[in-house]
């Protein structure tokens, strides 16, 4: 019998939550009891995480069992679950966003001077998002020029606001 996409999603989520709850419970039980310090047994660090993980384990197992039985919450397709509904446009946009955001946030920010990497990120993201948008009305030259202005103005403004007004030292050092 083939399952509804929602039930398949719930199955994966239920499995993940159950494993997470079980793992957290094991970790909670492994936490020290501080018996050598004569600590009160009801104040040990693993107590609350243990309680929370047990509840999470039960809830995860309930979701898993519900999905295994092929049922969803309201027996309707699409109860807020959208992960199964993709088209080419949404895939391309999501991949572009993830790639740009992860590259800037994890690899560039903090390791290179703020203004050039931020300007490069804003420029690349804006141009990329515009080029894949079917409803684009601007010419390529307009997009490139507009994105360049936005990138330079945005990067310098953010740098000025955070470093000179809010006195936050941005990582990567000054560039100019």
């Amino acid at each position: 019998m083939s399952r509804l996409p929602v039930a398949r999603t719930d199955l994966a989520c239920g499995l993940f939550i159950t494993i997470l709850g079980a793992g957290a419970l094991v970790e909670s039980l492994r936490m020290p009891r501080f018996e050598e310090r004569n600590a009160d047994p009801f104040t040990v660090p693993g107590l609350t995480p243990g309680f929370v993980s047990v509840v999470l384990l039960i809830l995860g197992a309930a979701l898993l069992l519900r999905a295994l039985s092929g049922r969803t919450a309201t027996s309707q397709i699409g109860t807020g679950v959208t992960i199964t509904q993709w088209n080419r446009g949404s895939v391309v946009r999501t991949v572009l966003t993830l790639a740009a955001v992860l590259t800037y946030g994890l690899l560039l920010f903090g390791h290179f001077p703020f203004v050039p990497v931020t300007a490069a990120f804003i420029f690349a993201f804006t141009v990329g998002a515009e080029l894949i948008a079917p409803e684009r009305q601007l010419s390529l030259l307009q997009v490139l020029l507009g994105a360049a202005v936005l990138a330079i103005a945005g990067a310098f403004t953010l740098h000025f606001v955070f470093t000179d007004i809010f006195l936050v030292r941005l990582p990567g050092g000054r560039w100019w």
Partner: peptide, 26 residues
């Protein structure tokens, strides 16, 4: 398309500004 890059940059810088830790950005 003209807004989201700025919003994300603000998210990154804002998270960093709280304690000056790259860990907060992660």
């Amino acid at each position: 398309e003209w807004l989201m890059a700025m919003i994300f940059t603000l998210c990154v810088v804002g998270s960093f500004a709280i304690a000056g830790r790259l860990f907060d950005v992660q």
